[in-house]
């Protein structure tokens, strides 16, 4: 498998705490890769290092064979950006309508004119089935709709890689499923490479081409989801069984309420 996004020896520490300690990761083009691991283990930190929101202490990130430096990434703004980031809490702007939120990256950081932007955003809203809510503010939208607006904003710049930071947190099981469907659906339609951080085990495996298990600052397992069960590592199976248990109990709590 040739890697589209190639990460080598990524280090990041906060104070005395080494959060990332030599991360190596290869992500194939147009694939869905999911990073799993305990809460607070550094999954979001890894994602933010890739998105350049955090500066890694050491290591390289290559996209399509080219090293990514901050300057190059910031320079890319007209044709489309390399990376988009979908935040856990959507990070939509309350004072802008759904339309304006989706149009924001184009209005502020592209050379497109107003008519072109409108056309592209309208098209995106049709895809996302949000045309009726274009003029509504995030506060007036349901959780699922907000997710779709955030996805629209992430995709409007035609990114090569989309980073999803826990896209399904805080959604009910049905919505979770529709968000996963959405990711798969749009991946096929727009052809981006997806990198997910998720706690929704095992549902997320259904849409993942590869799974990476992050523990103690390193990728301890990387492979197809099917290989997970046959893996001999006891720590990973321990984590997985706990994750499954946690999911079941939370489902049962949900049913009791």
């Amino acid at each position: 498998m040739d890697s589209f996004l190639k990460i080598r020896g990524l280090n990041k520490h906060f104070g005395d705490k080494r959060v990332l300690d030599g991360i190596d990761l290869d992500v194939a083009a147009a694939s869905v890769t999911t990073i799993i691991g305990k809460s607070g283990i550094g999954k979001s930190v890894l994602l933010k290092c890739i998105a350049n929101l955090l500066q890694p202490d050491a290591g390289t990130i290559e996209l399509d064979g080219q090293a990514i430096s901050q300057s190059r990434r910031n320079a890319q703004s007209d044709a489309g950006v390399s990376f988009s980031y979908m935040f856990q809490n959507n990070a939509l702007f309350d004072s802008l309508t759904a339309f304006e939120n989706v149009a924001l990256p184009l209005c502020e950081a592209s050379k497109l004119n107003k008519a072109e932007i409108e056309e592209r955003v309208d098209e995106m809203l049709v895809h996302l089935e949000l045309s009726d809510s274009a003029d509504r503010y995030p506060g007036e939208l349901s959780g699922g709709m907000k997710k779709r607006v955030a996805l629209g904003r992430a995709l409007i710049t035609k990114p090569q890689v989309v980073l999803f930071d826990e896209p399904t947190t805080g959604l009910d099981p049905e919505r979770k499923f529709s968000v996963f469907e959405m990711i798969v659906d749009y991946r096929e339609r727009f052809g981006f490479t997806a990198l997910l951080v998720s706690h929704d085990i095992p549902e997320v495996f259904e849409i993942s081409d590869r799974v990476a298990w992050l523990d103690e600052g390193r990728i301890k397992f990387f492979g197809k989801p099917e290989e997970l069960n046959t893996d001999a590592q006891s720590a990973l199976s321990g984590f997985l069984s706990k994750a499954n248990y946690g999911r079941k109990s939370s489902l049962m709590n949900g049913a009791n309420e």
Partner: peptide, 18 residues
């Protein structure tokens, strides 16, 4: 806190200027 400032940065928008 809502990561809106980070979001601007990922969209190549200068959050300070914006």
């Amino acid at each position: 806190n809502d990561e809106q400032i980070d979001a601007l940065q990922t969209m190549s928008i200068d959050p300070l200027g914006f």
